[in-house]
Design a protein around this nucleic acid. Structure first.
Lengths: 329, 329
DNA sequence: TTGTATGCGTTATCAG
DNA sequence: CTGATAACGCATACAA
């Protein structure tokens, strides 16, 4: 393996000089800079990130924390977009990435969790799909031991940012659009996980919308489950005018239920996943760019790592209807 | 951060002794062993893997090489299963994992690729979805620079294993089952990527099957694309008795085409992805356990890392039909 | 502007 | 059986 030492020898300079050139230190003469870069080029040298991390203490290693649902592929689609978006930006920012599933850390207390990440030289974490009742994670955030970006999260602090679309506004928009396209005096809203931050936001949006337009609103809890949404729709959809769902997967469950009941109600979803194209019926939905969400999260994390302080980053969304023709390729 | 030095001081022994205890060296007295373990416990010490990797050169870091398809969610499902299976086993075997997409290394030559992985202290690689014409990857395998497991691959060598189901037999079985369930004198086979190893196997199976049962066989290339399969079905399915596809996604494309043409032909797929449950029509397919494939691959890689030599590992499969009721949850 | 020396946390090689 | 001590590859304060 070719090391910085070889480069130094080849270029006829000291190791530290090579290091400085590579890390863009100021006060290096054009000449030595060129000598070093030539040697790097010639030897095809790539710095050993592990050694660099050890030496500098500032590892450049970040963790992606994902909540994996082993049964529902819609989640797979979103998680894959998250992963690829994150990796793309990580590569650009030269960050080393490890992927961790909630199941791995589920049983840990705060100290164990800190040790777990520390032992891996992690300095930043992107948390996807966090809930209110992930108590230890909240403690982890409050401890400010690591720089953290929470996707679709709520609170920020000095070393914690949140990134995501405005779920309140998006839910409001898509539901209002669906209302306006149809005669609507009453809405069935099938909400996501009760303890999820985005669910609070979305319910708030629906309540405000219902109040503004003076329509009846029935809220039921679908827990992001296709099956639960199906059962809720079977039970309550009949005497409502439209069905609004907190996720596409639940919208699909509800729509399938309506088809089985042989009645029609407009259904709208949330997320814009490809699976929507396979269902046969078109629905309004909010298209989030999960790739972008993740890449922006890593970008933001990188900023935190470089000393900036936590903040809230809002990403755009669009309202769409997905047809089979749109998604086949 | 508590280091091995702190443990040594606490236990009243030398650093090297602590290291030996931790790495289960022989010839350590019960007594010091206990002293060290007590100190480890008390200080809540977890070894720094980064430093260990640097020092030992044998990193315990492995890379997952995935071919990401940004448009088709079916692939997402499979890739997610791969990732989670791999991570699960990696955790068990205490291996550090990084995830790499083909796009990252696509343009590299052999030397650059070796440097890339070396610089990350990678010692083993699991390659998913490799094709015949990934020339540089073949060189990488031949170079035996790293321990490698190729999922659904062909050749092995001293430091390379292959893991996967028997695609020949599986394709044979599912097609034969579908044939027997229907009057069948002619088959349309929509094959996967031309340059993929599994495609060769599957085509061979179909040819043998057709010969044995003395039925007509038309083979067309669908490249694992839902759209291409659709077009092929539109064009050729009408005067064939059954349609056999090299992947579920193509089976879905073909089935949708048949529905559009308003004719019925039995279609069978391959993979057993959840999306099959959403299509409305049931089809025979081969269910692979992708989670298991990946976890077994990592397990096998671990064995290679520990000095065993390359071999071929066969995993089981089952024939199934997926209904919406099976996949909703 | 460049080079020297030290340390990061661990493993590994020797003496003892 | 245990303990110094030299690497591992790189970053960085400090000296020149």
């Amino acid at each position: 393996m070719v090391s910085i030492k070889d480069v130094a020898k080849e270029a006829g300079v000291a190791i530290s000089t090579v290091s400085k050139v590579l890390n863009h230190y100021p006060n290096i003469s054009e000449q030595t800079q060129k000598k070093v870069m030539d040697a790097v080029e010639k030897l095809n040298f790539v710095p050993n990130q592990v050694a660099a991390a050890l030496s500098s203490k500032r590892s450049g290693r970040i963790a992606l924390l994902l909540k994996l649902n082993m049964k529902t592929q819609a989640i797979d689609e979103i998680d894959m977009q998250y992963i690829s978006g994150a990796l793309a930006m990580a590569q650009e920012k030269k960050l080393d990435v490890i992927t961790v599933f909630y199941s791995v850390i589920a049983e840990m207390n705060l100290q164990e969790m800190i040790r777990y990440f520390s032992s891996q030289s992690i300095s930043g974490i992107v948390i996807f799909g966090m809930n209110d009742d992930d108590k230890v994670l909240h403690q982890l955030i409050e401890s400010q031991t690591f720089k953290i970006v929470v996707v679709d999260g709520a609170e920020t602090n000095e070393s914690t940012s949140v990134v995501g679309v405005d779920h309140y506004q998006a839910q409001y928009d898509v539901a209002q659009k669906t209302m306006r396209e149809n005669m609507c005096r009453s809405i069935l809203y099938i909400a996501g996980m009760r303890n999820s931050y985005v669910t609070h936001e979305k319910i708030r949006a629906m309540e405000d919308l219902a109040k503004k337009h003076n329509v009846k609103l029935l809220i039921r809890n679908g827990d992001f489950s296709e099956l639960k949404a199906r059962n809720i729709a079977l039970r309550y959809a009949k005497n409502k005018d439209i069905v609004v769902c907190g996720s596409d997967l639940m919208a699909i469950g509800a729509m399938k239920a309506l088809i089985d009941m042989d009645i029609f109600r407009p259904v709208c979803g949330f997320d814009g996943i490809i699976l929507m194209g396979y269902v046969g019926k078109q629905m309004n939905t909010v298209k989030q760019n999960f790739f972008k969400v993740a890449s922006e999260s890593v970008c933001e994390l990188n900023r935190l790592l470089n000393g900036s302080s936590g903040r809230k980053v809002r990403l755009p969304y669009t309202l769409v209807r997905l047809k089979y023709e749109d998604i086949i390729c």
